[in-house]
């Protein structure tokens, strides 16, 4: 029986949605960790942490959904990426562990507080780097034979992936600083306003480098971009427009817009990346359809998700609403 819809495409959209949700949401809270060592005061650190403490766990759940969703809909991706990025995945998980426990431990610590400051900062930065490197590795492609990864343990670690790793650190830091502009006030906000332009410059530099470098790393990508003018150029253009909007809103001291503009930059860059690779999910050889799970499995899960995901979005939005508004310096923990 031929299915009416191509489930695989629907699933690709769902997974892509899950990933960008994760990047945006955990991005700003990882960003707090990346900026942690540079914060002007311990009070500022309290505010930074309090601004994300009620929501970080929910944000990270999108990562788990990404993992489980890939296993369900595109098992080949799950079964190739994880072995290929074995060491990187470990580093990311270790980073997430250290930063996750820091939320609880830091507020219960007295003399050992500095330890959890570092745990939060290093953990977040390592996790961000590892995730950036994953993106780079995906652009590079993997050595796969017979549906299994056959490369070495550190094949993923190249100058290119190191750069994408640092790029994502800068990107998350930017999300973090614009989030802080929205959630804080007074000195802390002033500090966030000061650092944001520098972070934006760092992000734009990486953006330019990746754009120039990618075609050399992957010929197929080059072809897609340079074989005549195509719609694909729209994405970087829109991303740059968002950057301009960010600059303007910083000038006008609009508390909310910088964060929204940064999210826009992320979304359009992400769409550009997808467009460069589509439909390859395990580059260079396997497409979405090669990687897909059985039709009935995709369908079984889809039926549930259509029902459950809207509910999840509603109560997630509700928790953000409960914790809306500025976080005051000195306001306590639970």
């Amino acid at each position: 029986m031929e299915p009416v819809f191509d489930l695989t495409i629907i699933w690709a959209v769902i997974i892509a949605f899950g990933i960008i949700m994760y990047v945006l949401m955990d991005g700003f809270d990882l960003g707090q960790g990346i900026l942690f060592p540079f914060a002007p005061s311990e009070d500022a650190r309290d505010v930074m942490m309090n601004s994300v403490a009620p929501v970080w766990d929910g944000n990270e759940t999108w990562l788990i959904l990404g993992g489980a969703g890939l296993l369900a809909a595109f098992p080949l991706v799950y079964a190739v990426f994880l072995p290929a990025l074995y060491i990187g995945v470990f580093l990311m998980l270790a980073g997430l562990i250290f930063r996750g426990v820091a939320f609880e431990f830091r507020f219960k610590a007295k003399t050992s507080k500095y330890l959890w400051n570092w745990s939060f900062a290093i953990g977040s930065t390592v996790a961000a780097f590892a995730q950036g490197a994953v993106v780079g590795a995906y652009i590079q492609g993997f050595a796969v034979e017979d549906f299994s990864y056959v490369g070495g343990a550190l094949d993923w670690l190249t100058p290119f992936t190191v750069m994408t790793g640092f790029g994502l650190i800068a990107g998350y830091a930017l999300l973090g600083s614009t989030w802080l502009i929205m959630k804080s006030e007074g000195d802390i906000q002033a500090w966030a306003y000061r650092i944001t332009p520098w972070l934006l410059i760092a992000v734009l530099v990486v953006f330019a480098l990746v754009s120039v470098w990618t075609p050399f790393v992957q010929a197929s990508v080059a072809e897609r971009w340079f074989a005549g003018i195509s719609y694909i150029w729209l994405f970087p253009l829109l991303a740059l427009l968002c950057a301009l909007w960010l600059v303007r809103s910083l000038h006008q001291r609009r508390d909310g817009s910088p964060f929204v503009a940064t999210m826009g930059m992320f979304i359009f860059t992400y769409l550009g990346l997808i467009a460069s690779k589509f439909p390859y999910v395990v580059p260079p050889n396997y497409t979405l359809w090669d990687a897909a799970s059985a039709h009935e499995s995709q369908l079984f899960l889809l039926l549930g998700l259509l029902f459950v995901i809207p509910i999840v979005l509603v109560y997630t939005a509700w928790t953000y609403w409960v914790f809306r508004g500025k976080v005051k310096a000195g306001a306590g923990y639970h």
Partner: peptide, 27 residues
């Protein structure tokens, strides 16, 4: 890879029906 057709949906259902619920209301 071999068990994904069963394990994947089951673990995904766990994420969407349980983990999100726990995480959101925990906050």
């Amino acid at each position: 890879y071999s068990a994904a057709n069963f394990l994947g949906p089951v673990l995904s259902y766990e994420v969407v029906t349980a983990f999100f619920l726990e995480a959101a209301f925990l906050g």
